[in-house]
Write a protein that binds this DNA or RNA. Structure first.
Length: 894
RNA sequence: GGGCGAAUAGCUCAGUUGGUUCAGAGCGCCUGCCUUACAAGCAGGAAGUCGGGGGUUCGAAUCCCUCUUCGCCCACCA
C-alpha cells in the first residue's frame, strides 16, 4: 500500500496502469474456454485519422460494455483495427502531393500507391495508440487493417462468390461522378444538400417538317436547372395525356446553339405541372433520363462532359464551349441563349443537389461502366432479422430507418476510379469480350486464351468494411477465432453510417456466414459545440481528447461522456470552457481519490477483512449504506443490460458522493478515529462499500478505480480489471433501515437549515426537540437517538441542548413531525436582532424607492414594459424577503 | 414531397408503464464556512405556467389533436 497524494494526479498513474493491464494479458480473448463469449468489433477508424471527440465517445462506450462483460465473467473480445478509407486517404496524400506541385497522374499509379503506403506506415495507427490513452481494452494482438493481405483475400473471395452467384455484374449506368476526386460514388456517398438555384426556361426551335427551315418557326419551352447538359439531349418528352402538346407528338426540335435535331416523344414519368410540362431527356447525364430513354428505346447516349466535368471536345458541343468547366459553360450558354432570344425566363428555384461526401464537390451524373452488386436478394434476410427481433437497435427508432432503407434498396456501385484500395479482381480479354473474375491473376482469358489486363478500378471502401465482423476473424478459412467469436454481440456506432456500414454488415453476415454479425446496434449521439454544430476541422470547434486527458485525466473524460450521453442523444462540449465541460468527471475523480485517502489513512490498524461483517454489530447507518449499496448494484446491473449507460454513471455517482461520502462517512467518522467502539465494524463496512463502488465504477473510470483498488488492504487482490462485477443479490437490502435513516436525514437537514438561516457559528452545538407526528414516528426517533448523536459529534447537533419554549425555530419534517431548535444558547440573540433589524431597514428603504418609482406615472408610461416588469419583480422579491425577516425577528422575540 | 426527432432552471440535459418518491441533475449564481479525505470541498439558498392552444382522465412534463420554432434523414418534379 502506497500513500496517496492529496490531489488526484491522473498523469501520474494512467500510463503505468495501462501497462499493467497489458502485461497481464487480460485484454486478450481466448478461444479454448467454457466462458460465454462477448464480442464487439470496433468501427475501424480511418488509418490516418487522429482521435477526435466522436471517436472518444464511441470507443469509451464500447470499453464500458466490454469491461462490464469481462467483469461478469464472459470471454470478451474487442477487436480493434483500422480502415484504409479509399477516397479519404487518397485525398489526403493527393493534398500532400499538391503542396509539392504534383498530381497523382504526375507520379503514376505505382509510385502513388507506394507513397500512400509510406504515409500509412509512418503516421497510420496513431489513433490506436490514442485509444490506449483513453483506456480502451482492445485485444491488440488481433489488430486488423482492411488492406492486410489476409483481409484482401476475403475481399476478393466475396467479389468472386457474388459474381458466381449472379449477384455481381458490370453494367453501363448513370452514376454519381465526383469530378474532383475523379471517381464514381455510390448513392449513399452522394449526399443531398439544399441549394438556392435557378430554373432556366429554354426555347427549343420546332422544325415543322424536313424542309421547314424557314422563318415561320415556333418554339417549345423546356425548364431545366442544368442547361449545360442540353447538348446530350436525345429527345423531349411530355406526358401522354397532356393535351397541350399532343399536336407536337413526333415533331422534331433543334437543340439551341448546337442545332442537333431531336424528336418529341411521351413518357408517363413527366409531371405535367412542373416547369412547362415538357422535359428534356439527357440519358448520359441524368439517371432518370437514362431510364426514360431506355424505355423509349433506340436512342444514343451521348456523353458531353469529360471526367473533369468540362464540356467534351465533341461535335455535339458548340466549338466555343468545348473544354469549358461545367459551371463556366452554364454561364456562357445562358449568355448565348439570351442573345439568341432562346432564354424565355429564369425562375429562382431551391432544390437539393448531391455532393461528394468526402470533398463536397457537386457530383455530376455520368454514364459509365461500373461494377454493381444486386442488393435486393441480400437485403431480404437482413430485413427479416430485424423484423424477427434477431437484430435490434438502441434507441429503437433507428430500426425504422434501417428497415426503410432496406426496403427501397438499389444496386450498389462498388467501382471507384481510385488507386488506393482493393484492385477489382476482374480481367478483360484483349481479344474477346470475356471478363475473367478470379481470386488470382489468370495467365490468360478463360474463354479464348487471349492475353488479359486487370480492371483499373478499385473497390468502394465499404465493400471491404462490410466484411469486418468475419474477415477480421480469418474468414474464408474456418479458423478457431471464427468459430469462437462469430456471431458477435454489440455494435456501437454512429447513426450516420447505418446505411454505409451497419446494414451492409448485416447483409454480408447473413449471406456469407448465415447469421447476423451482432444482436444489438447501439447508436451513440454526435458530439457538438454549444451552438449545436457538429465538430469539424473547418470550423475548428472540436476538442482534442488528448488535451482533455492531459488536463483532467482519461477517467474525467470518460465519465463526462458516459454520464452526459443518453443513448442516441448528442453530447455538447465547449472547447472554450474545458473546465466547465469536464467538471463533473474531474470533480468526481477527485472525490473518489479522497475517499480512498480517508480509508487508507484509517484502515491501517485492524481493518475487518471484507466479507466478514458481523450482522450483529451493524448499526443503523451501516445497515443503511449496505442496503443502498446493494440497490445500486441491482440498478446499475439492470441499467447496463438495457444500455442505459448514462443512468449507470449517474446512479453510481450519486451513491458514492451523496450516500457514501456525505452521509455514511460523516456518520462513521467518530467510530473511525482511534480505537472506538464499533470501529472495526465501521471499517469493514466502509471498506466493503468502497470496494463495491470501485468495481461498479471500473468500466466507466478504469484508471483511478484500478489505482485505488491497489491501495485497499487485502493480499493478492490482483487487478480490478480482472476482478468481478458485484453480484446483484438481496442480501443487504433493508427497507426498514432506509426508511429510518431517511428520517434521520430529514431531521439533520432541518436543523442545518435553521443553523444556516440564523447564522449559528460552525462548531457551535444546538439542540433539537422532536415532536413526532405519531407513535410510529416517535418510536423511530427514539430508536435513532444513537445515530443522531453520532452526527452530533461532528459538531452540528445535539439532542439534549436547549430549553423548551425559549428562543428558537420550528421546522416541519416530511413525515409531519416537527422539530424545535432552541437558539438562545447558540447565538447572541441581541446581536442577531440588531443585524436583522439593520437588514430590514435597508430593505424598507429599497422598497420605498421602488414603490415611488412604480407610483410614478411617467415611469409607468414611458419606460419599456420589461423594465417596469423588472421593477415589479424586484418589489415582489423584496416584499418576500421582508416577510421572511419579520418572521425571523418574531422567532427571536425582538 | 415523405418520415423521424427535439422544445423542461441562466447554460447543457435527465425524467422508462400517466399517480406519494415529479418538477430533477451537473455547471453557473447567492450566503456562510480553509470542520484533521477532499476549497476540484462542506452546509444552506434563489431560480422553471415543463414551447403555445385544445382534448382524454379523478389525475398529464408524460397520452391524443393542433400550431410555432429548430434539427436530422429519406425522395427520380427535370
Amino acid at each position: 500500500m502506497t500513500t496517496l497524494a492529496p490531489q488526484y494526479d491522473p498523469s501520474a498513474i494512467e500510463a503505468g496502469t495501462y501497462r499493467r493491464w497489458m502485461d497481464s494479458g487480460i485484454f486478450g480473448a481466448a478461444v479454448d474456454t467454457d466462458r460465454r463469449p462477448y464480442v464487439i468489433v470496433i468501427p475501424p477508424p480511418n488509418v490516418t485519422a487522429v482521435l477526435h471527440s466522436g471517436h472518444g465517445l464511441n470507443n469509451t462506450l464500447q470499453d464500458v460494455l466490454i469491461r462490464f462483460e469481462r467483469m461478469r465473467g464472459r470471454e470478451t473480445l474487442w477487436l480493434p483495427g483500422t480502415d484504409h478509407a479509399g477516397i479519404a486517404t487518397q485525398n489526403m496524400v493527393e493534398r500532400m502531393l499538391k503542396k509539392e506541385g504534383k498530381t497523382r497522374q504526375d507520379v503514376g499509379r505505382e509510385a502513388f500507391v507506394e507513397r500512400v503506403w509510406e504515409h500509412v506506415h509512418r503516421t497510420g495507427g496513431t489513433i490506436l495508440e490514442q485509444l490506449k490513452a483513453i483506456g480502451c481494452s482492445c485485444d491488440w494482438s488481433r489488430t486488423r487493417f482492411t488492406l492486410d493481405e489476409e483481409y484482401s483475400l476475403a475481399v476478393r473471395k466475396v467479389f468472386v462468390s457474388l459474381h458466381e452467384q449472379g449477384l455481381l455484374y458490370r453494367g453501363q449506368r448513370v452514376i454519381h461522378w465526383c469530378p474532383r476526386c475523379r471517381t464514381s460514388l455510390s448513392d449513399e456517398e452522394a449526399e443531398f444538400v439544399d441549394q438556392d438555384d435557378h430554373l432556366y426556361y429554354i426555347k427549343y426551335r420546332l422544325i415543322e417538317g424536313d424542309d421547314a427551315d424557314d422563318e415561320s418557326r415556333s418554339y417549345v419551352t423546356v425548364a431545366t436547372t442544368r442547361p449545360e447538359t442540353m447538348f446530350g439531349d436525345v429527345c423531349l418528352v411530355f406526358h401522354p395525356e397532356d393535351e397541350r402538346f399532343q399536336k407536337w407528338l413526333g415533331a422534331t426540335v433543334e437543340i439551341p446553339l448546337s442545332g442537333v435535331r431531336i424528336p418529341i416523344r411521351t413518357s408517363t414519368v413527366v409531371e405535367r405541372d412542373f416547369g412547362t410540362g415538357m422535359l428534356k431527356v439527357t440519358p448520359a447525364h441524368d439517371a432518370n433520363d437514362f431510364d426514360i430513354a431506355d424505355a423509349l428505346g433506340g436512342f444514343e447516349r451521348p456523353i458531353t462532359m469529360d471526367e473533369d466535368a468540362r464540356m467534351e471536345d465533341d461535335p455535339r458541343v458548340p466549338e466555343q464551349l468545348r473544354r469549358l468547366d461545367r459551371f463556366d459553360a452554364r454561364k456562357k450558354i445562358l449568355e448565348l441563349l439570351e442573345t439568341a432570344g432562346q432564354l424565355e425566363r429564369v425562375d429562382p428555384y431551391s432544390h437539393a443537389v448531391r455532393q461528394c461526401y468526402r470533398c463536397e464537390t457537386i457530383v455530376e451524373p455520368r454514364l459509365s461502366d461500373q461494377w454493381f452488386v444486386k442488393m435486393r436478394p441480400l437485403a431480404t434476410p437482413a430485413l427479416k432479422a430485424y423484423r424477427d427481433g434477431r437484430l435490434r437497435f438502441v434507441p429503437e427508432r433507428w430500426g425504422k430507418v434501417y428497415e426503410h432503407w432496406l426496403m427501397q434498396i438499389r444496386d450498389w456501385n462498388i467501382s471507384r476510379q481510385l488507386w488506393w484500395g482493393h484492385r477489382i479482381p476482374a480481367w478483360y480479354c484483349e481479344q474477346c469480350d470475356h471478363i475473367t473474375v478470379a481470386m488470382e491473376e489468370p495467365a490468360s482469358c478463360e474463354a479464348c486464351q487471349g492475353s488479359v489486363r486487370q480492371d483499373e478500378d478499385v473497390l468502394d471502401t465499404w465493400f471491404s468494411s462490410w466484411l469486418w465482423p468475419f474477415a477480421t476473424l480469418g474468414w474464408p478459412d474456418e479458423t478457431a477465432d471464427l468459430k469462437a467469436f462469430y456471431p458477435g454481440h454489440t455494435l456501437v456506432t454512429g447513426p450516420d453510417i447505418i446505411f454505409f456500414w451497419v446494414a451492409r454488415m448485416v447483409m454480408a453476415g447473413y449471406h456469407f456466414m448465415g447469421d447476423t454479425p451482432f444482436e444489438t446496434v447501439y447508436l451513440n449521439g454526435i458530439v457538438r459545440d454549444p451552438l449545436h454544430r457538429a465538430f469539424s476541422k473547418t470550423l475548428g470547434n472540436g476538442i482534442d481528447p488528448m488535451d482533455v486527458v492531459e488536463k483532467f485525466g482519461s477517467d474525467a473524460f470518460r465519465f463526462t461522456l458516459v454520464a452526459g450521453a443518453a443513448a442516441g442523444t448528442d453530447v455538447i462540449m465547449d472547447r472554450n470552457d474545458l473546465d466547465g465541460t469536464f467538471a463533473a468527471g474531474r470533480n468526481f475523480a477527485n472525490k473518489l481519490w479522497n475517499i480512498g485517502r480517508l480509508i487508507v489513512a484509517n484502515l491501517s490498524d485492524g481493518a475487518t477483512p471484507t466479507g466478514s461483517i458481523d450482522p450483529a454489530h451493524l448499526e443503523l447507518a451501516d445497515r443503511w449504506i449496505l442496503s443502498r449499496c446493494q440497490r445500486t448494484i441491482s440498478s446499475a446491473t439492470d441499467q447496463l443490460e438495457r444500455f442505459r449507460l448514462n443512468d449507470v454513471a449517474n446512479e453510481i455517482y450519486h451513491f458514492v458522493w451523496d450516500d457514501l461520502a456525505d452521509w455514511y462517512i460523516e456518520q462513521v467518522k467518530p467510530r473511525l478515529y482511534g480505537n472506538r467502539e464499533g470501529g472495526d465494524t465501521a471499517r469493514g463496512v466502509l471498506c466493503h462499500v468502497f470496494e463495491t463502488a470501485l468495481r461498479l465504477l471500473h468500466p466507466i473510470m478504469p484508471f483511478i478505480t484500478e489505482r485505488l483498488w491497489e491501495g485497499l488492504p487485502g493480499t493478492q487482490r490482483g487487478l480490478l480489471a480482472a476482478s468481478t462485477w458485484p453480484s446483484p443479490t438481496q442480501e443487504f437490502e433493508d427497507d426498514e433501515a432506509e426508511n429510518r435513516f431517511a428520517r434521520v436525514q430529514s431531521l439533520v437537514g432541518a436543523v442545518r437549515a435553521v443553523r444556516a438561516e440564523y447564522g449559528v457559528a460552525p462548531g457551535k452545538l444546538v439542540g433539537a426537540r422532536v415532536q413526532p407526528a405519531n407513535t410510529d414516528a416517535l418510536e423511530a426517533f427514539n430508536a435513532e437517538q444513537n445515530t443522531i448523536e453520532r452526527l452530533a459529534k461532528i459538531g452540528e447537533l445535539s439532542m439534549d441542548g436547549g430549553e423548551t419554549g425559549g428562543v428558537g425555530a420550528h421546522q416541519v419534517l416530511p413525515d409531519g413531525s416537527s422539530v424545535f431548535v432552541p437558539l438562545g444558547d447558540a447565538i447572541d440573540v441581541e446581536r442577531e436582532c440588531k443585524r436583522l433589524n439593520g437588514e430590514l431597514e435597508r430593505l424598507e428603504k429599497q422598497l420605498s424607492g421602488v414603490a415611488s418609482k412604480l407610483a410614478n406615472e411617467n415611469f409607468i408610461s414611458r419606460a419599456p414594459a420589461e423594465v417596469v416588469d423588472r421593477e415589479r419583480e424586484k418589489e415582489r422579491s423584496w416584499q418576500e424577503q421582508r416577510e421572511a425577516l419579520a418572521a425571523k425577528l418574531r422567532v427571536l422575540g425582538c
